[in-house]
Design a binder for these strands. Structure first.
Length: 323
DNA sequence: AATCCCACCAACCGCCCATCG
DNA sequence: ACGATGGGCGGTTGGTGGGAT
């Protein structure tokens, strides 16, 4: 049985908004606010519209300081860079572009920017390649034997990838649901990486531990529960579980990070903490926005499109971190 | 002038998650 | 603890207008 509809579908108007409806909605919200209840709002405002429709109309069109019209080159670059690193998280990308809405950016990407980057080649050819990014960054700072590292999950071929400086070997000692083969060193745009091939043909639940050794000989374990998007990191007596309970928390974390990426959170040396910690991904001298258009194209073509995410343990909820 | 095709974008849909009772 | 509800999100659809044939 499906869930109950949010409104009486038979009695709500659909389709384009009239100027009168816009005026009613705008006047009501400016005078009374949304009241935190979009479902009840249309009735109070005298509109025969679904609450969700009102919300969308307000957020995408009526609210103050909405910017319409051409995107600047800077905006293009920000969109491309963020798309390459986090995928189609339009709301997060929109958060970095004041006045732009996620819908705007999504439409702009789908209709113009994609073509600008790739010409008219069908994106569907690239859709098979969907990569999950998992950034194990600040987790591995300071006392950790590991340098900052990045793990990429590519769901098109069930592989995890990480910069070669992070792990020298990977011993699948305790895996239950999935196993990991010996790493295969590879070159990539992100620098040298090692690739961990899963044997389970797509099941990404790790029931046990995946042990690995760093180049200095120390040992660590990483446990990944793909279904619940939870990661656990253990290094001797140092043990962290990285919880990802809910996309909303996750989104805000990523938004924080992408804010730093774009706006900068720079220390005395001119590097943001995030840039430093992401050096395993971005390289020694590059900032994310230093990507040229060809590199962005390459990144997008190999990391598109819909299921990218970044894990940043430093932002993990207190309750999810223990030793 | 009529038709077709395509680009654009506003709006809708369905899903997931958080919150609340 | 659990189900109902609402908010928010990404993907998709459909209407419209302009250019090509």
């Amino acid at each position: 049985m499906g869930r109950a509809p949010c409104c009486d579908k038979a009695n709500v108007k659909k389709g384009p908004w009239s100027p009168e409806e816009d005026a009613k909605l705008k006047d009501y919200i400016e005078e009374n606010g949304t009241g935190g209840n979009w479902i009840a709002l249309p009735q109070k405002a005298g509109l025969r519209r679904c609450g969700k429709s009102c919300r969308l109309r307000w957020l995408n069109y009526l609210r103050p300081n909405i910017k319409h019209g051409e995107f600047s080159d800077d905006e293009d670059r920000i969109i491309c860079t963020l798309f390459a690193s986090i995928g189609s998280r339009w709301s997060i990308i929109a958060a970095q572009l004041p006045g732009r809405t996620d819908n705007d950016i999504k439409n702009y990407w789908n209709t113009k920017l994609k073509k600008k980057l790739f010409g008219r080649a069908p994106q569907s050819e690239r859709k098979a390649q969907q990569i999950h990014h998992a950034t194990f960054s600040s987790l591995l700072q300071s006392s950790s034997p590991f340098p900052p590292s990045t793990v990429l999950y590519n769901c098109s071929n069930n592989t995890y990838q990480t910069p070669a400086t992070s792990f020298s070997c990977f011993e699948p000692s305790c895996l239950t649901a999935a196993s990991i083969l010996q790493p295969q060193p590879q070159e990539s745009l992100l620098g040298p990486i090692q690739q961990y091939q899963l044997q389970d043909n797509g099941v990404r639940m790790f029931g046990g531990e995946a042990s690995c050794s760093s180049s200095d000989g120390s040992c660590s374990n990483i446990q990944i529960s793909g279904k619940n998007k939870e990661l656990e990191y253990s290094n001797g007596d140092h043990h962290q579980q990285i919880g990802m309970h809910g996309y909303h928390n996750f989104y805000s974390e990523v938004a924080d990070e992408s804010q730093k990426l774009i706006m900068g959170d720079h220390g005395a040396d001119g590097w943001s903490d995030n840039q430093k910690s992401a050096n395993g991904l971005w390289g020694e001298t590059e900032t994310p926005l230093d990507y040229g258009i060809e590199e962005i194209k390459q990144l997008i073509s190999t990391t598109s499109s819909c299921n990218s995410f970044i894990f940043d343990e430093s932002k993990a909820d207190e309750k999810d971190v223990y030793y």
